[in-house]
Simulated scan of single mutants.
Amino acid sequence: MPSLDENHTGARIKEQRRIARLTQRELAVIIPYSYSLLNQVECGARAATPDFVAAVAAALRIDVTVLTGQPYVTELQQDRLSALVRPIRESLDLYDLGAVPGLEPRPAAQLVVHAADLCQAVRATHLRKAAEKLPGLIAEITSAAWRTPTTELWQALASTYRTAHDIAVKLGYFDLSSVALDRMAWAADRASDASLAAVRQYMRALVYFREGEYTIGQRLIRAGHGLLQGDAPTRVTTAVTGQLHLGATIIAARARDQHAVDAHLEQADDCAARVGDASDVHWMSFSPTNVKLHRMSAAVEMREYDDAIGQARALQLPAGLATSRRAHFLIDRARSEMETGRTAAALATLVEARRAAPEQTRYHPGARETISGLVHMARSTPETLGHMAAWIGL
């Protein structure tokens, strides 16, 4: 049976706790989680759930990535993805230099289409494809927008910055994702597009959610709603409003606020009933199905794992659901199955997630923690679990 190495999340928590000169009992009081759970996580006997990691990071005043080990450099190098990050970083840094000398961009209509294509590629979890094409497209749209400023071009540029954020998050480069969101705000302002600006606040809220800063996340959600007020509702603004409520649902669930969870889900349900499937609106996957998926995710965040599994079994995912959402659903389901002792089901679900979205699953900290947890729980290791553990670098 494979054993946990000394670089798992629990070991990193132990190291950072010692640097902060705290005993396990002292940290357990601050988090607050039980001393027993902290002890089990540090020695690798229990998986470190996202809410637990966020609580420790907030208590120790460090980034979550210090504890999760992101980005997973060895695996990124093996997949030849790390080399694609620097060109993206450079393209984000050169936003204010005007048109690129000697570059003749394609017609604006083509650039707009290609920007949407990259958003769709990320939703389909084709991260390498999107990462390869992104820097060149940013340069083209930037040049075109500086030379002939139009709303459509600034919107397309904001869209490419959003794609940069999505790729950075999925690969674990959260510093880069923050830069991308700043650039998205810059382009959305030039496009005078309130819905894009609101989407950006939604994404900022999720950044703080991952870091365990739930109050800030809620403030950003409210700021997003504020940007959409004043004008008559449209299909786009209603879909974005609904997605903001879904983001608030997960933040409230992590904060253990059941009343807020129910209130935001009710608002999201109302928006979904009015617009139906609006997954094409800023590629957010907003739809009645997505509301159901967030309802299940809220149960997971509140550690109501049996309820989450019951919801998962009742869900019928449409064929057209974005692969990224399908994979996220499977990872949530696997976590719930592991936490309730259904280890064989959890492994089968993770294998399904890997088949659907290998890049997303390999670099998803929740999937990696679940695999680590299954390794520890197994009295003997099935061949499939051994392969999965080796695949994530365990």
Rank of each mutant, 00 (worst) to 15 (best):
M1I: 09
D5Q: 08
D5L: 10
T9C: 14
Q16D: 02
R17I: 14
I19K: 15
I19M: 01
Y35C: 02
N39K: 13
Q40R: 15
Q40C: 01
C43V: 14
G44H: 06
A45K: 15
A55H: 03
L60D: 06
Q70M: 06
L76Q: 02
D79P: 00
R80N: 15
A83W: 01
A83H: 09
R86G: 00
I88S: 01
R89K: 11
L92I: 03
L94I: 10
L97Y: 13
A99C: 12
L103Q: 10
E104V: 15
R123H: 14
H126Q: 15
R128V: 15
R128W: 03
G136E: 14
I138M: 01
R147T: 15
Q155Y: 00
I167W: 00
I167Y: 00
I167C: 02
K170H: 10
S178D: 13
S178P: 00
A180F: 02
A185V: 06
A187W: 01
E213P: 00
Y214M: 07
T215P: 00
G224K: 12
H225D: 05
G230R: 08
G230C: 07
G242W: 03
L246K: 06
G247E: 09
T249M: 11
A253R: 05
Q267F: 07
D277E: 07
A278R: 03
F286P: 08
N290F: 07
L293S: 12
H294V: 07
A298V: 05
E304Q: 15
R313D: 12
L315N: 09
S324K: 13
A327S: 14
D332Y: 12
M338W: 09
G341M: 12
T343W: 13
A345T: 11
R354I: 14
A356C: 13
A357Y: 13
P358A: 04
R368S: 08
G373V: 04
M377E: 13
T381R: 09
T384C: 03
H387L: 09
H387V: 10
A390F: 05
W391A: 09
